[in-house]
């Protein structure tokens, strides 16, 4: 049970980075980015490319990768940000300026999702890939097993979350983003450079997502459909927490991660005891979804939402 909880935290860390991105875009740009999952996948593949192209500098002690992975993460963030800004200028911005509804923007992001996914398939093919070798998990008390990589995953996620928090809290453009999140029209009226706010929203959201993809790739594997599979839990985390709250997104992601892992385990035991042949792990995304339905029934604006 404790092991499941820990697994949930690890999964939650990965979901957090995606969820913060989705919540920022939903809050400031006013639509749910259905391309987010494929951006996550693309980020993972970009890192794969970078790691493959670099000479090997050996691994960090205990981890399955070396310093080139750090550079790969940065590389992936930069390139994905570039992609995102490109799609914004070419697609989302014209639609925004025309006054397109949230629904149109979501639809257009679905188009972007398929564009990215097809590029991944064309360039890298369908097979599962890995950054490095397999790792053995170490045993800890309470039956917890953790691979060394997993410390890196949680640590990196935490580091990035804190960085984003400080950015939003301390920098001028970060405050402007928070202002735009509060009241977009007033932000314009105040003279805030909305173009800048939009750009930085994409940069932060997509960079976090790229990192999320890489961490997911380290944890599990790299496959074209990886991002799409995790998109539902990401959306659910955002919806459950309430759109617009960055810390809330993290809490939501942790709840979803832990719930997925623990409920899967609990329900599996239950089904086994009842002699029902159900493979619960296959239904993990569905658990997230059911949670979302329950939360929305009782609190439609989400746990931390402000009910706009």
């Amino acid at each position: 049970m404790a092991d499941l909880f820990v697994n949930g935290i690890i999964l939650g860390s990965i979901i957090t980075l995606g969820a913060i991105g989705v919540t920022l875009i939903a809050d400031i740009l006013n639509f749910f980015n259905f391309a987010h999952g494929d951006m996550l996948s693309f980020g993972a593949y970009l890192a794969l490319f970078f790691v493959g192209a670099m000479p090997s500098w050996g691994n960090f002690p205990g981890l399955s990768f070396g310093p080139q992975m750090i550079l790969a993460i940065v590389f992936s963030m930069v390139i994905m940000s570039g992609f995102a800004l490109f799609f914004d200028k070419v697609l989302f911005k014209p639609l925004r300026e025309r006054g397109s509804s949230e629904l149109f923007l979501a639809l257009s992001s679905l188009g972007v999702a398929f564009i990215l996914r097809s590029i991944i398939r064309l360039v890298w093919g369908p097979q599962a890939q890995y950054y490095g070798g397999l790792q053995m998990a170490n045993r800890y008390p309470l039956g917890i097993t953790i691979k060394p990589d997993e410390f890196f995953i949680v640590g990196t996620a935490l580091f990035l979350v804190i960085t984003v928090y400080l950015f939003l809290k301390r920098t001028k453009i970060g405050k402007a983003m928070r202002a735009a999140s509060d009241n977009e029209t007033l932000a314009r009226v105040t003279g805030i450079n909305t173009e800048s706010v939009v750009n930085w929203t994409w940069i932060i959201a997509v960079s976090l997502t790229a990192a999320s993809g890489i961490l997911y790739g380290i944890q599990v594997q790299i496959r074209p459909i990886m991002g799409w599979n995790i998109l539902i839990p990401i959306f659910v985390a955002v919806v459950v927490a309430g759109v617009g709250d960055v810390w809330g997104a993290m809490v939501g992601a942790m709840i979803i991660g832990v719930a997925q892992e623990m409920l899967t385990g609990v329900l599996q035991n239950l089904f086994n005891a009842l002699n029902l042949d159900v493979l619960m792990t296959a239904y993990k995304p569905a658990i997230a979804f059911v949670l979302m339905v329950i939360v929305l029934l009782f609190r439609p604006q989400g746990i931390f939402g402000t009910g706009e």
Binding site: A26, V239, A282, P285, F289
Partner: peptide
């Protein structure tokens, strides 16, 4: 649910059904 939330829900339902069919 409004707009985007409804879309997400329908997507999730679709995926869930696909999982059920598969498993």
């Amino acid at each position: 649910l409004r707009g985007g939330f409804f879309a997400i829900s329908m997507l999730a339902i679709s995926e869930t059904i696909r999982l059920i069919v598969k498993n």
